[in-house]
């Protein structure tokens, strides 16, 4: 199981992509996902409304219960939220509510907030061989000393762009665009 309250394994058919004694790859249940852009002031206001402050340190993630704010760039964050009940429906209403609340909180301070709940899907890669499996396609150093628990980055999975977040010593989350998922899953299943 992932070391975060946020990601839950999907319960749909085919959700288990890889199931081996030393590593599993599982599709994650849908989440509300928001792309937030703006300066530190905007981010500060957004974090207060969101319920998880937006980290200012590069490559940092701030998971708080069923919310998480991931640093993706100097003015860019990915905000994740689970609805509380694990379902297969994308929580549009939650995304809508969060958008409204954050927009209200940030007000006229320049920023951009876009719902990308449907754009991304996530895979949970877990087990003692998780890092080794990811390293078949991800060129980053995933040694815990170089990529500690909690670190998140946008990177390449061979020819697909992903967001890679280490949520535990042996657990990673891979976020990718929806149509790239079969490619990412296929390579993980072969790896």
């Amino acid at each position: 199981m992932p070391d975060t309250a946020l990601y839950a394994p999907a319960t749909t058919q085919g959700a288990s992509v890889v199931s081996r004694p030393d590593v599993t790859v599982t599709r994650a249940a849908p989440l509300a996902r928001l792309a937030f852009r703006g300066d530190a002031t905007a981010a500060g206001k957004a974090g207060a409304a969101f319920g998880a402050s937006l980290p200012m340190a590069p490559l940092a993630a701030n998971p708080v219960g069923q919310r998480a704010a991931l640093w993706l760039g100097p003015d860019e964050w990915l905000l994740l939220a689970a609805s509380g009940t694990v379902g297969e429906e994308v929580p549009w209403a939650l995304a809508r509510t969060l958008c409204d609340e954050i927009a209200t909180a940030v007000g006229t301070h320049p920023h951009a907030l876009v719902d990308v709940s449907e754009r991304n899907v996530a895979l949970i890669v877990s087990g003692p061989r998780a890092a080794a499996l990811l390293n078949t396609q991800v060129f980053l150093d995933l040694d815990e000393g170089a990529f500690p628990v909690g670190q998140v980055t946008r990177t390449l999975f061979t020819k697909a762009e992903i967001v890679l977040w280490r949520t535990g010593p042996d657990t990673f989350v891979v976020e990718c665009w929806r149509s790239f998922a079969p490619y990412v899953e296929g390579l993980l299943a072969n790896g």
């Binding site: 792309a35 703006g38 990308v116 709940s117 754009r119 665009w177």
Partner: peptide, 12 residues
């Protein structure tokens, strides 16, 4: 310019 771009190709 205060403006940001977000790809939504796969959001819709």
């Amino acid at each position: 310019l205060n403006v940001w771009l977000t790809s939504t190709t796969e959001q819709w």
